[in-house]
Design a protein around this nucleic acid. Structure first.
Lengths: 152, 152
DNA sequence: TAAAACAGGACTGATATGGTACTATATTAG
DNA sequence: CTAATATAGTACCATATCAGTCCTGTTTTA
């Protein structure tokens, strides 16, 4: 199904929630309550997000997390990458030497292209856009989406 | 990492191999030999591809598989879908009622959009393009790739 | 100094995946 | 007509990955 992991899904939820209170510091505890998820799970996600620099963490009493970048400048791709690592469809798209078939298989460059096309698709959607529900009926993606032809 | 499954990767390899002998019927055994993969694995993949209508199967002595559509008309997206099912990033992108958080979460429509953008990215690459190695150095995907803005 | 909150890592159970095997059915050569 | 060959369908198991939890240590402040 080519899906993101649940943890990544949670991460988006948490970021959306965090974004609702602009710049405020919120504890993992409070975030867990708001999102109706378990504290340990929320904590795990927040640690990963903090490590990736998507949220700022504050220790001690009254500590917690806050966003220090505007939601419009954070893409869905970044959040996914923070939790799952680089967006790549195959091992060989990440770096050379990971796949044993590399000598025989000449698909590597093609996969890299597809991966980066997919990454681009998700870089085009910001957290700000995820934050508000879509009010109007979904309009089909139009011909704006094109992929450069391979081998060109 | 947002990756496709190994089985899907195999499927592409097998399709590329099958495409090399235009229209000829090749047994799973022969395909396994050419791709240096195990017969049971190749068989499994071929069965899925046959069920999806991407290859034609022939039983009995001299049986095997053949492509009956030109490689240019088969997209990577189709092959992925044949093995993994619909291309969707989250449960809720597939259909209503799969996710317990559906009432609380208003991300569904956004996820559907992202999923279809990703799908489109892969629909744009044909098996024919995957079949030949890229000879010239990879040119970066240019600004041809755009995504319609959400909420628009 | 004690309480609150994050950091980091380890551990476990569940789930999904990859890979294999077995039985049934179809086809055709002889 | 029969035997050989090849796919169809299904079931199975081992393993890897993931989700979720917990524990210990560190930082901060009331």
């Amino acid at each position: 199904m080519l899906r993101i992991s649940k943890l990544t899904d949670y991460a988006i939820l948490v970021m959306v929630e965090l974004n609702d209170s602009h710049g405020e510091v919120i504890s993992a505890h409070a975030l867990a309550a708001h999102t109706e998820m378990e504290l340990p799970t929320v904590s795990k996600v927040l640690k990963l997000l903090a490590k990736a620099g998507l949220v700022r963490s504050f220790r001690g009493i009254n500590g917690g997390y806050s966003m220090d970048r505007p939601a419009g400048s954070i893409s869905v791709a970044e959040i996914i990458a923070a939790i799952e690592g680089p967006i790549a469809m195959t091992e060989c798209s990440v770096e050379v030497g990971l796949c044993s078939q590399e000598e025989v298989c000449n698909l590597r460059s093609n996969w890299r292209r597809i991966s980066s096309a997919v990454a681009r698709a998700m870089e085009g959607v910001s957290l700000a856009e995820m934050s508000r529900p879509m009010r109007r009926p979904v309009r089909q993606l139009g011909p704006e989406l094109k992929i450069a032809t391979l081998n060109s």
